[in-house]
């Protein structure tokens, strides 16, 4: 027969855990909202940049930009975007699994990694695939500067010919309960993305169009990276929120069943005592 006191202690401990998970869920919900707003705020900039790039590309005198140059893929860099923290369900595990899959698929090529977020680094730091670059502790506060720093490294290695392609792997925010893992080719920039939809406006260019394009292209990549960071952060908070909600529900269930067991044990104890008293009295008469 379980001890009533022990069960009571157990319930208290579960209740404490429940309070923590509940608080974490609420914090994540607030952070998620902020992350979603950040995505929305970043959208106009990204949209404009893309449109300007498109209209510049449509002009015939602009020759192919080096960032668009397709080469045989021999050296590949994979940017893996994970979270800095755990306790968010399968969020990090899924990304790591996808990255492993990617590496296996391109086994015959030389791949190295760029880990964004601590969890990816924790995993791949101990594995055979070399981690060339890392960027951790940025999800507390995502700034455009982070994206610029990351992109600077990627672009310079691509342009020097050290890498033939750069892929980006991250969690896309679909809804609060759903994340989608996305693999995107960042460099060379897929030309399909830059195809023009409508007729370009005929601008007067203060600088030669090619010159503007040269500075604009890396910025377009920066925006892509920035968006991936924002998406991943929103997805992370969403995942954490669901995970913590589930944990809170589990705690409730556990408390219920423990309470039931405790009541049963208490009742059994009382019954036993009554029997003892009654039989004691019967023995006297």
């Amino acid at each position: 027969m379980p001890n009533v006191l022990d069960i009571r202690r157990r319930i208290r401990s579960v209740r404490n855990t429940q309070q923590i998970t509940k608080a974490m869920k609420m914090v994540s919900a607030a952070k998620l909202r902020r992350a979603q707003e950040a995505i929305l705020r970043a959208r106009p900039y990204a949209g404009r940049i893309l449109e300007v790039v498109r209209s510049l590309m449509a002009r015939s005198e602009v020759r192919p930009h080096p960032l668009l140059q397709e080469r045989e893929e021999r050296n590949i860099q994979l940017v893996v975007v994970t979270a800095d923290k755990g306790l968010c369900g399968a969020f990090n595990a899924n990304i790591v699994k996808a990255a492993e899959g990617f590496i296996r698929e391109k086994e015959d090529k030389s791949i190295d990694l760029f880990c964004v977020g601590r969890k990816g680094l924790d995993y791949f730091g101990k594995r055979t695939t070399p981690v060339r670059h890392q960027q951790v502790n940025l999800f507390q506060r995502i700034e455009y500067g982070h994206a610029r720093e990351i992109t600077g490294k990627l672009v310079s290695q691509f342009l020097s010919g050290e890498r033939d392609a750069v892929y980006l792997l991250y969690n896309e925010f679909k809804s609060v309960i759903q994340q989608r893992i996305v693999v995107e080719r960042l460099l060379p920039i897929p030309p399909i993305l830059l195809a023009l939809e409508q007729n370009p406006v005929d601008y007067i260019y203060e600088q030669p169009a090619a010159e503007i394009l040269n500075t604009l292209m890396p910025r377009h990549v920066e925006v892509q990276v920035f968006r991936a960071l924002l998406e991943s952060s929103a997805a992370e908070h969403g995942a954490r929120m669901t995970a913590m909600d589930a944990a809170t529900n589990n705690a409730v269930e556990m408390i219920d069943s423990l309470t039931l067991t405790m009541n049963r044990a208490r009742q059994a104890g009382i019954t036993k005592e009554i029997i003892e008293v009654v039989s004691g009295a019967a023995a006297l008469t």
């Binding site: 406006v201 601008y203 007067i204 203060e206 600088q207 503007i212 500075t215």
Partner: peptide, 19 residues
Amino acid sequence: PGKNGYLGILPGHAPMMTE
């Protein structure tokens, strides 16, 4: 603040693009 110097824009300006 254009790259080649400050420039003023008034309504009806021709389409233009500058760094």
